[in-house]
Design a protein around this nucleic acid. Structure first.
Lengths: 334, 334
DNA sequence: CTGTTAGCGCGTTCAC
DNA sequence: GTGAACGCGCTAACAG
């Protein structure tokens, strides 16, 4: 038998109370006499009543749903953050609407409008590029937005991330300590602040402190894919004197690693690599890759926690949270 | 200035028409005079009006949102399916609410109720175990459910997946052709039908056709993690005579591969491996792993397409769709 | 502590 | 073609 949707009104009638009272017990409002509460709960159970979240959303203007915008869920980095977000969201009874943006500006704006139409209570944004149009849209949104895994360099939107500059600085320092004279910087699009600004700054700082001249021919801009890492290998191998690289993405680093090894370059003897993020990939390949330990799950979790506070209009001491990272040295460095 | 939510009523007033007319143009109802339509559209644009999806959902009883239940989004297999689902969902203007179930029965049921409360129009379920309680809940749901990447062995719920039995049969046949006499079957929980039923059946069929006795000591049940693959290596290596394995999961296979190699076992010379799913991992490790090519993205996409038909109450010729797979032979087999 | 009464923003008959 | 009116299921004052 098709289950007729049973409403709060049915429960009220059956329990001999008003729908307001039913609403109160459903929402845990303390102003209900225990006896009444018990009676209502019995009816709720008997009728198998389940509140309609949509109607609730319309009436209360809160959907208990948040939107998550990320470039691509199949990238381990984002999937890990998403998992952290979802766990905390569930804890606070929020649901998550996922939107893949492919780092496409039009799509991001479209997706944002979509999320707003659905009346999400908050948004978590992941991704590295934020163009002005999107930034405007975020500011115009009457819903809180938190950046996870990156920061908006142009703005002070709330965010949770690591100090990428410091992380790369440490990584490159390690490479310098290991007597490498020419160290490559390999990353995805430099147009993304995390690469073109923060990480590159860390790289340059480490070099300058070591009195090594910055050589832009050692900066390689590509995509964050395994395939491009493989392709890049021959170019790297033929760049005279380069004996080490910081690589901003694990998949990319694995591609480079395999590509180099296929060319007969020994890692770490002839070439050292430090990657970023420390996803599970880094320990699955041989040699295992040294990496910047990015607390991905925690980044998502903390971002979500921050968002709950913002949605709840609580005072937050710090809207831009920097999480600690660590360096995990494995076999791709000496 | 805080954007006051502007409603269909505001548009009606500004345009000098009734809200019914505005509703008609917003929903593309043809019964509107072109002039009127144009006027309304202008006002909509001028006022930057965006329909409230929640109110729409209440009134129409359709949320244009679907629920996706999966074990863990950080597992590449599920992330790939999710990506396929999302792309098709977007195409049909649906949004996705993601729920991680961790293959936990209580959580699954809870998550299902949650989704129903949110009035999702349909559900895509991924996961390998379906217990009776969940099955009942699915059947009681007045919303269509499609299985993606697995089938419900006990039922005829709509599904999209590959023929795992046939796939494993082919894989094991290859190993048999390569003169392996003792071939291990390694998978996650055998309680999951995909392992304990379909895959194992394929394995046994291949063996029996080759007149090889089935030896349950060669069936290894573990979890689908890299770490457990590594741990399993020594056990496998010390099992006399085993020279090959079918491994039901790529991460697990990589763990085994690395574990074996660390023990000095040469792959594929001393030991051959064929894994399942052909995620990107298989070509990142050395030797690259031969694998059953599972059309993950397509599985998600087709499942979502099927769901749209079901939600639309269209007639579907086949509710249980089997997608083709292929065998990708790489360096872990001779 | 409990009931009444308004909406929330929109889709949808039904008349005109 | 278009508008008036009702209702979707629930929350939130406001009385009492």
């Amino acid at each position: 038998m098709a289950k007729q949707t049973i409403t709060i009104y049915d429960v009220a009638r059956e329990a001999g109370v008003s729908m307001a009272t039913v609403s109160r017990v459903v929402n845990g409002n303390p102003n209900v006499k225990p006896v009444t509460r018990k009676k209502v709960n019995e009816v709720i159970e008997r009728l198998d009543y389940h509140p309609n979240a949509v109607a609730r959303g319309l009436a209360s203007k809160r959907s208990t749903t948040i939107g998550v915008i990320l470039p691509d869920i199949t990238q381990m980095f984002f999937a890990s953050l998403a998992r952290g977000i979802d766990d905390i969201a569930s804890m606070y009874k929020y649901n998550i609407i996922l939107e893949n943006s492919d780092e496409d500006v039009d799509k991001k704006v479209e997706v944002l409008e979509n999320l707003q139409a659905k009346q999400v209570d908050g948004i978590i944004y992941m991704g590295n590029a934020v163009d002005d149009r999107l930034r405007e849209a975020f500011k115009a949104a009457r819903t809180p937005v938190v950046f996870a895994g990156s920061v908006d360099d142009k703005n002070t939107l709330p965010s949770v991330s690591i100090d990428n500059k410091a992380a790369v600085y440490e990584a490159v320092n390690k490479l310098i300590d290991n007597k490498n004279k020419k160290i490559a910087f390999i990353s995805g699009p430099l147009s993304e602040p995390v690469n073109g600004k923060f990480r590159l700054e860390g790289y340059r700082l480490a070099l300058s402190e070591a009195k090594v001249d910055y050589d832009e021919n050692l900066v390689f801009e590509t995509s964050n894919t395994y395939e491009d890492g493989v392709k890049l290998a021959s170019e790297i191998a033929s760049t005279t004197g380069v004996t080490a690289a910081f690589v901003a993405n694990d998949s990319l680093a694995v591609g480079l690693l395999n590509g180099l090894q296929d060319l007969g370059v020994k890692v770490p003897e002839d070439f050292e690599i430090i990657s970023s993020n420390n996803t599970s990939l880094t320990k699955m390949v041989r040699p295992q890759i040294s990496s910047i330990g990015h607390p991905m799950y925690d980044t998502g979790a903390v971002a979500m926690r921050l968002l709950t506070k913002l949605m709840n209009k609580e005072e937050v001491e710090e809207r831009n949270i920097t999480l600690p990272f660590d360096m995990v040295f494995r076999q791709s460095t000496k």
